[in-house]
Design a protein around this nucleic acid. Structure first.
Length: 586
DNA sequence: ATAGGGTTAG
């Protein structure tokens, strides 16, 4: 049997030729050779206008406005500009190359818009930051598909209207749409933003029900939600159950551990990740450097800095902000400054990091100077910036400046002071000897006091040898936690330094009566005996060593010539022969 | 179409 013949070719040959040439045309488009594609396949395009879609997609990737305009004119000349399919592609192109206005005009001219057209415009408006227009479009739609709901949920979450995103999920469910992996990814991100563990667990049920547990995106989002909401165990479980992990799943786990304070585990996990063969990227570096910063492990920090440079990630503001903090906490302020100055693009967080670094090193003037420069450059300071700035002022005894900034924060920036801000101000007033004002502030502030803020005041009493007030304050702290040894110890030291031995022995009696015990520092002593001089020690968790500094000291920074350097949140303690540089024995 | 990050008081 022979095939019918078209001219000199069989039908099969014609089809084969057609498939071949379409393939070649698509190939040219995907490589960006638009002119060649148009010239060689003019007749094919004219007979099948849907082929224009490939040209449009190529133009979208090129992000070239002139290319897009030429192509658009060509489409108009070909007479298929009323084709919905082509029009939707054009809408998408204009929105992706940042020509929202053109897309809006085109959308307005379309005679028969379909759901797809509206979906594209919802996404386009969201991407250009206009959530309201997206919402209006969404609300005006009589028919929606799953992508419509997904676009709106994603937009709401993107602009941190997380609760509303969750509400929309239940609304879509009510009208009969089951969430897919895209919806779930978005709402889980919303739950993470809300630290909403309960809502997140409910979404987890949807994930299981839809069979998306093993989906990389849904799985990572789920794990991220758990870890951001403080449930590291559940998050880790989700990741471990995933049969295939990619870089993002790894980093989700690493970042989760970093955020939950497991800095040591972060470094282990990071090394493991590299052994398995994943390449770290800038987001990995940020998490890892922050952990080095928390541990004050300079050597590891420097090594990772080198890797950052090698990976070409050294220009990222996020990476640089974490480097500034790491070097500052490792006593290398010069390197912090260097990193700060080398940064080409800057933002609030970068400036805040540098202000914090100066404050950490007791350089109040420099911190203030930087803040003023920041204001001149019209960067909007945030609440964290002010914590660092106030901290810098209090550590340098700059009372007037500090109070001025506190005022500025409330009045000019409209920020509501948090407990951290009040603690800085109490420290500021207390250090400068305004003990009564500091106490009054704690009693009158609109947020609930915690033991830390009272302890801050107690330290100030110690500096100014005010035993009477210290006694009253110690009672208040013990009201928060009667078993806390720190106020007794502080009070005892205050009595001792004021040479009131009577008060001191009464206090020790009270401690015995209430069965309060001060933790001995056995572990540190053992470490010192068993570790050869000059060997760096990485981390010791929950180590209490210095009772005089009244802060739980957590990390050993290094051991040099049998001298141990320990870091707490605000300063370095040098221990030699069992004696701390701040004067206390352990 | 969708996922992961940086600065913060004692």
């Amino acid at each position: 049997m022979s095939c019918p013949r078209f001219f000199s070719k069989t039908a099969t040959e014609v089809v084969a030729h057609f498939v071949d040439s379409t393939e070649e045309f698509i190939n040219l488009c995907s490589k960006g050779h638009l002119k060649e594609a148009v010239n060689r396949f003019k007749s094919e395009i004219w007979s099948d206008p849907t082929l224009f879609s490939h040209l449009i997609q190529s133009c979208t990737l090129k992000k070239s406005l002139s290319c897009s305009k030429q192509l658009h004119s060509l489409i108009v000349t070909s007479g298929c500009s009323s084709n919905n399919f082509i029009c939707n592609h054009l809408l998408n192109m204009y929105s992706k190359i940042g020509q929202l206005q053109t897309a809006v005009t085109l959308f307005g001219l379309m005679p028969r818009r379909n759901i797809m057209s509206c979906n594209i415009m919802i996404n386009a408006n969201e991407q250009s930051g206009d959530l309201e227009s997206a919402r209006k479009l969404f609300e005006g739609m009589t028919k929606r598909n799953i992508a419509t709901w997904n676009a709106m949920v994603a937009g709401l979450v993107q602009f941190e209207f997380n609760e509303e995103g969750l509400r929309l999920l239940s609304e879509m469910h009510q009208v009969g749409f089951l969430p897919d992996e895209f919806t779930l990814g978005s709402v889980l991100r919303g739950c993470a933003g809300l630290r909403g563990l309960d809502a997140g667990r409910q979404i987890h049920c949807y994930v299981v029900k839809g069979g998306f547990e093993l989906d990389l995106v849904a799985g990572s989002s789920l794990a991220h939600m758990y870890m951001k909401s403080g449930s590291l165990v559940e998050g880790e479980k989700v990741i471990r159950l995933m049969p295939v992990c990619n870089v993002i799943a790894w980093i989700t786990l690493i970042a989760g551990k970093a955020q939950n304070g497991l800095a040591e585990d972060v470094l282990d996990q990071y090394n493991l990740m590299r052994m398995v063969g994943f390449r770290p990227d800038k987001i990995t570096f940020v998490s890892v450097i922050s952990s080095c910063s928390e541990l004050a492990t300079l050597g590891q920090g420097q090594q990772i800095h080198a890797e950052v440079v090698k990976a070409g990630a050294s220009l990222d503001v996020g990476v640089i902000s974490s480097l500034i903090s790491m070097y500052s906490r490792c006593e290398c302020l010069d390197d912090s400054v260097k990193a700060f100055l080398e940064c080409e693009y800057s933002d609030v967080v970068l400036w805040s990091s540098m202000i914090a670094a100066y404050g950490f090193h007791g350089k109040g003037e420099e911190a203030i100077n930087l803040f003023e420069q920041m204001e001149q450059k019209e960067f909007e300071a945030n609440d964290v910036t002010f914590v660092s700035l106030l901290y810098a002022c209090s550590h340098c005894g700059l009372k007037e400046k500090g109070m001025e900034f506190f005022d500025l924060m409330v009045k000019k920036y409209g920020l509501k002071p948090r407990l951290e801000h009040y603690t800085c101000v109490v420290d500021l007033l207390g250090r400068c000897g305004y003990l009564d004002e500091a106490a009054a502030l704690i009693r009158n502030m609109p947020v609930k006091a915690n033991a830390i803020i009272w302890k801050t005041l107690l330290s100030a009493c110690k500096i100014h040898k005010s035993t009477d007030m210290a006694g009253r304050i110690a009672e208040e702290i013990l009201g928060h936690n009667p078993q806390d040894a720190a106020p007794y110890v502080l009070l005892s030291n205050i009595h001792a330094s004021a040479k009131r031995w009577q008060g001191d022995s009464e206090l020790r009696e009270a401690m015995r009566e209430r069965n309060v015990k001060k933790e001995p520092a056995k572990s540190l002593r053992l470490l010192l005996l068993n570790t050869p001089a000059g060997v760096p020690i990485r981390v010791m968790k929950n180590l209490r060593v210095c009772s005089d500094c009244h802060v739980a000291i957590k990390y050993i920074s290094e051991i040099k010539n049998r001298e141990i350097i320990v870091r707490d949140a605000s300063r370095f303690h040098h221990f030699r022969n069992g004696k701390c540089s701040c004067g206390d024995y352990w």
